[in-house]
Simulated scan of single mutants.
Amino acid sequence: MTTAFAPVTLRAGRLTLRPIDAGDVDAYLTAVDDEVRRWMPWSEDFTREKAVRWCTEEASGDLSRALNLAIVPPETGRLEGAVGIGRADWDTGAAETGYWLGPAARGRGHATEAVRAVARHAFGLGLTRIELLAAVGNVASQRVAERAGFTREGVLPEARPLPGGKMADMVRFRLLKGEL
C-alpha cells in the first residue's frame, strides 16, 4: 500500500483536477463567496494573504495525509473550487474527502465528478474507505455525496465548527472501494 499521496493531475469527466499553485490566487479569491463562507471555517476572515499562503504552501503540504486539487472546468481553464482527500490513515485504509465550489461552477455536476475522481484515485493507492461530512443544513453538499455514490451513515452531533465557531451537527457518508 502507498503511504503518501503524490502531486497528480486527474481527469474527471469534463474537468481537470490539478495541483493548486500560486497562479490560482486571484481565482481562489473570486470563488470564495458568501455560500462558501457560510459552511467553511477556513474562509472566515479570508484575505489575499491567506489565499496566497494556501495556494503556495498549505495546499501542497503534508502529502502523507492529504491531497488538494483545483477543480478546473474547460470553459474557464481557471480554478473554480477545490477537492481533496484528507485525514488519510494508511494503516486502516480510511480517509476523508472534502470539496467546495465557487458560484460559477455550482449546479453543473462538477463537485460530483470531482469527488468520484479523487475517491477512485485514493482507492487506486490502497485506501478502502472514504468518508464525507456535510453540515446538516448544507443540503447541496449532501446531494453531492448521494450523487457521487456515498451512503449516509448517520448524524454526528456537534462534530465540526462552522464559521464563527458554532459547532454543527454533521451528516456522515461513506464510500467503500467496491462501491464506486
Rank of each mutant, 00 (worst) to 15 (best):
A159V: 01
Y99V: 03
D89V: 01
R106N: 08
M170D: 13
F5R: 07
T76I: 14
V52L: 11
A4F: 11
G61T: 11
L17F: 02
F46L: 01
P41C: 12
N138W: 09
T92K: 01
A119K: 05
K166M: 09
E35A: 13
V155I: 15
I130L: 15
A105H: 08
L69S: 02
K166G: 13
T3K: 07
L175T: 06
E75W: 10
V144S: 10
A4N: 10
L29D: 08
A135S: 09
E49R: 12
W42T: 09
S60D: 10
E80K: 00
R160E: 15
W90V: 10
A66T: 10
G126D: 11
T76D: 12
G81P: 15
G81N: 13
L125W: 08
D169E: 11
M170Y: 04
A111S: 08
S64N: 06
V52H: 06
L176F: 10
G107C: 08
M40G: 01
R87D: 14
E146N: 03
R120Y: 00
A27R: 07
A122V: 02
E49T: 12
A6T: 15
E57Y: 06
T16Y: 00
A66C: 08
T3E: 01
W90P: 07
I71E: 08
H110L: 14
M40T: 07
G81W: 07
L17G: 06
N68T: 06
A51W: 14
